[in-house]
Design a protein around this nucleic acid. Structure first.
Lengths: 201, 201, 201, 201
DNA sequence: AATGAATGAGGCTTCATTCAT
DNA sequence: GATGAATGAAGCCTCATTCAT
């Protein structure tokens, strides 16, 4: 029993150290597009050596993926929280998600990157898929709560798609400030929520 | 006047040569993710030298942008054609667009790339924006034809977003064939068309 | 006296632990070219930590050398055994040696490595030289037994050289199986034995 | 016709530029063990950029191989020259070869490296094999000229092996000068020549 | 206009060794 | 003695761009 505990401790220690690198990377990506960040920068920003990065991740891609999965978990957790007492309205859900994307562009950039061709291992693809499904489940729950009775799964897909599309279409709008973009995308979120709500089931 | 004509001729010649490079590049991108294509590959595939590429474009990014704008024009042209006699139904419009994206993943990848951080010159951003607006206009027309009376512009934005989001969410679905993906994304296009149509205006 | 005994015991213990690492490494080198083996691999294969390796050896090179010397001792021992009753014939000696090399390519690779530039400490070079001399002595004995009367030392050198050369020339022969190589190298060993035997002294 | 000539010229030009890199590398390897030479060093020594190296060779290994093949050609050429009027005696042949190895340790180191596990492409292995065969042919000719009637091929193999073995066994002899080594290895070459000559056929 | 060889900064990753626990 | 995380120098190689021909 003590032996197991020791091993557990080691694993926990290791995980917490890895988390430091992870969080530091996320911080960095807020400043700089993750696609142009180098290992050197990540290491420097985390205050560790390059080698340490590779102690935790076999390559940069896996670190990126880990950052992404971490964010996905965070969203899921926050959505769970949001719907603790009663499921959120579609309007709430959509606005929450778009707010999150505005606050965490990296999450969105990574999603695009991975979904549109980032070379992932089979294992990584599976992990990615799993997290996305969890997110989808929450969307479906909100749809059910909104009164939809049929085709809830495919409609959840459509809703998820629609929300994701907002950012790709408006994240960069020439001559607009971040605030303009936030306002416009939230407006679009509201429109999306509207069309998905009032539709007869 | 003859002088002008000569210049015109030269310009036309130049443009047609540039078009050869452009088309060849598009061809290449169908085989290989444009983000991993090198100038050497483009030159080789087009049967010209690297230097020639740089005679037509100041850098790779501009070539990519040109390919993208060319595709956007093509879509716009095809949509125009589709609505020549009477504006297309939302269902038609959505299915057409998603079909196009399935057939031209490069277009979609480039859209993501440029919208999510591709470093573009001011000039390039303007050109990009202009083409996107034209596409949006056509979406708005279809919405008007579908009976929508108010908020047509913002709803067109939402529709455009929703369609774009379909691909980012499902272009890579582990264990699915291209055909599965096409079927699923078309299904989602239909759902999107549905929610945008039946909504009270 | 007891104190000495205790120290001896400790030394023996230590030696036996070191031997475990050593044998494990040799095992590993049979699978993987020693030039591309990492400390991590050696440690893992031996079931010890990296640090433990460095408790026994100041650096990787010394471990390699130790493996090599161990092999040399083994050969010498086996040759001694072979000539216990009467010295082996040249044919026997040559075939035995080449068989050993075929079975222990690592030995041969290391010999090349050390002789052709492996950066060895003075001390290491001396140890290496000593073991090689022992091997040479046995070759000389066999030559004497074969009837050679003069220049036995230099001829032993030549014989040793000739045998070593067999492997470098044929260890990699494109399109040949291990068995083909074994057969061919044994054939060459026989030829070498022949020319060294029939020569007038 | 002129077009072909132009292309030929370009190829010749390219080859001669590549030759400059090649010769420079060989020069460098005389100073420093090729196994520890870096691309940067090669580039610097050749007075070109790193990129230029990679214009001529897909990777370092191929450059090493080219250096080696070039040396092999040189030996063959020199041996041809040596036997222009009448085939060289075994003594001449052996001494010539060992002299060459003493003067060009890199050649020998590379031979060991490639034969003992240097990861070569299929194509490279074939090229290597071809050159080795040419060298072998010349050895066989000398054996024939020395009066040997039977088993000339396998004996040529044995002779070649024996000569190669000389260097691996004595290139590094602790406490000996280059001159000592040269003298000793030539002595051994002479012994080898002797045993191969006087053997009954 | 067309060519393509040359450039070289900079990317990712490896790995022997150290040292605090 | 044993451990293994941390280190960071150094390796190989890529590739957009330039420019002399």
């Amino acid at each position: 029993m003590p032996k197991i505990k020791l091993e557990n401790l080691k694993q926990i220690e290791r995980d917490s150290r890895r988390k430091i690198v992870l969080d530091s990377a996320l911080e960095l990506f807020a400043i700089k597009d993750f696609r142009s960040v180098t290992v050197r920068e990540i290491a420097k920003h985390a205050g560790v050596s390059i080698g340490t990065i590779y102690n935790y991740y076999p390559n940069l891609m896996e670190l990126f993926l880990d950052v992404f999965l971490d964010s996905t978990e965070e969203i899921t957790r926050m959505l769970d929280e949001l719907g603790k007492e009663k499921p959120p309205s579609l309007e709430q859900l959509c606005k929450f998600y778009i707010t999150y994307l505005n606050d965490n562009m990296t999450f969105y950039q990574m999603m695009s990157h991975f979904m549109l061709g980032g070379e992932l291992s089979y294992d990584a693809t599976r992990k990615l898929d799993k997290k996305m499904k969890e997110l989808m489940n929450l969307m479906e729950l909100a749809l059910l709560a909104s009164g939809r009775k049929s085709n809830t799964r495919v409609t959840a897909h459509a809703l998820f798609s629609a929300l994701n599309g907002i950012m790709i279409s408006y994240a960069r709008y020439p001559g607009k400030t971040d605030d303009d973009i936030r306002r416009h995308t939230l407006r679009l979120a509201s429109v999306i929520a509207g069309v998905f709500k009032t539709t007869k089931v």
